[in-house]
Design a protein around this nucleic acid. Sequence first.
DNA 1: TAGGTGACGCAGT
DNA 2: GACTGCGCCACCT
Length: 114
Amino acid sequence: MEIKGTANFFERVYEIVRQIPEGRVTSYGAIARSLGAAGSSRMVGYAMRAAHRANPPVPAHRVVNRIGVLSGKMAFGSSTLMQQLLENEGVEVVDDRIVNFRAVFWDPQEVISL
DNA sequence: TAGGTGACGCAGT
DNA sequence: GACTGCGCCACCT
């Protein structure tokens, strides 16, 4: 299914990211698939980089790459800020990588299938 | 107006 | 099983 009401690709990405529960994370690829743009995972990452421009701001720190690495921590201004935010939500992060990534992984399809 | 960039993911070797 | 290269498409300069 596709989300309607959101004309811009970026906003569609933000819509999904905003649905991520606290203490959970997801991957760019998962979001891309949810939007029907499986091959455009890069676009999701690019959208996240500009997430700070979104209104209201999206929890971009809950989005990581497919292996659970905080690839975009730099976009937060501080290399440790992203990790701090995740740990604050109960997500364990070691060496810029999420521990038990599979356990805290949240599939966007879960909401879309509503 | 046109080109380059980019928080990734997958297939092939 | 692990590593490298290519594709993808919207936004920014």
